[in-house]
Design a protein around this nucleic acid. Structure first.
Lengths: 183, 183
DNA sequence: AGCATACCGTAGTGATCGCTATGGAATGTG
DNA sequence: CACATTCCATAGCGATCACTACGGTATGCT
């Protein structure tokens, strides 16, 4: 009834796929690049993950979960302003970390608009809480501020892709923080 | 000595190429799409523009010139702050104009990093002038503020690509303007 | 008019893409 | 041990890519 078990770790292979998609994007990542990065032959890849689209979906979902964890960690800061500052700082440092690919998969990949929207909603909720608790003035429109922050993070990601240093991207984050109103 | 002249207008064909690259990006734009959009057969295209890379270089150069004109027009505003406001407003409206492709070719195309840098330098010079003239506080670092603005515009472009409305993108611009210090 | 030139349209080149059919090897079960 | 099942490896499928070699043909110069 049972046959030979697969000789590679599915999670490790998926992690390698995430990194490859992250590094070169969906279009520029060929199956050959994926099989080499994952240490798996094409038939094994298709048996384990379906087609390229499905593999990307699974990879981007995993990436998105990691991103959400980071956002939630930042959101745990006592004030909304501190949460935003932490998030921008994390973004700057993570996207210029030389140990990982530059930039952000989510914010540069055209097909991940729903994830960006979900991220914006999370931000908007944290900001709304900050408004309710008096961290931010009541004139703040949570969805607008969230959209601004997503735009800034996307710009930071692009700057990192273009070779911007950690200091340069951090400066963008600092400048953006000035746009967050004080109570 | 002279043979048959070409039967299409080179400038019009280049304009069509600009629009096609703008709409679908470099990678996703095939020669077949270009020939159809330009109303030109492949051999004529290669005779007139060289290969695909060279055509893209020429198209992006033309696009960049238009962008520079818009930036210079905004820079003519009396104060640096007004120039920045005008530029952000232009960006929001232009990139959500339904008569043209959504988003910005320059800010979404990976290979146009030098143009982005040139744009940032132009902005930095205008900001430096504003600092010198007292429009902005002397604490402003022109290059950092310029990098921030380029990042925001890139984020606005992406938001427009994702289907963001003019109002949404304008709201991002307004929020970003709050990050520009007052004198 | 007549010639030389450079156009246009078709069709096809080699390369690469995502994806899969075919075998032989390796494992778990009876 | 023998069998069933699922694995891995090679090789190749059709489709599409950027790009070009051929014809016929329309133009400008003499």
């Amino acid at each position: 009834m049972a046959g030979r078990p697969r000789s590679f770790d599915r999670d490790e292979a998926l992690a390698a796929a995430v990194e490859q998609f992250w590094r070169t994007g969906y279009d520029q990542t060929s199956i050959a690049m994926l099989t080499q990065a994952m240490g798996v032959t094409p038939p094994s890849l298709y048996a384990a993950f379906g087609d390229k689209d499905h593999l990307f979906d699974e990879a981007s979902t995993r990436y998105f979960e990691r991103t959400c964890e980071a956002v939630d960690a930042a959101a745990a800061q006592p004030t909304a302003r501190a949460a935003i500052a932490r998030m921008l700082d994390d973004t700057a440092r993570a996207h210029t970390d030389t140990r990982t690919p530059l930039g952000c998969l989510m914010l540069t990949e055209p097909r991940l608009a729903p994830q960006r929207e979900a991220l914006r909603d999370r931000l908007a909720r944290r900001i709304a809480r900050g408004v309710a608790e008096g961290d931010l003035p009541s004139s703040v429109r949570p969805d607008e501020l969230a959209a601004f922050l997503v735009a800034v993070m996307r710009g930071m990601s692009g700057c990192a892709r273009d070779g911007g240093t950690t200091a340069e991207v951090l400066a963008i984050a600092d400048t953006a923080l000035a746009a967050v109103p004080r109570p």
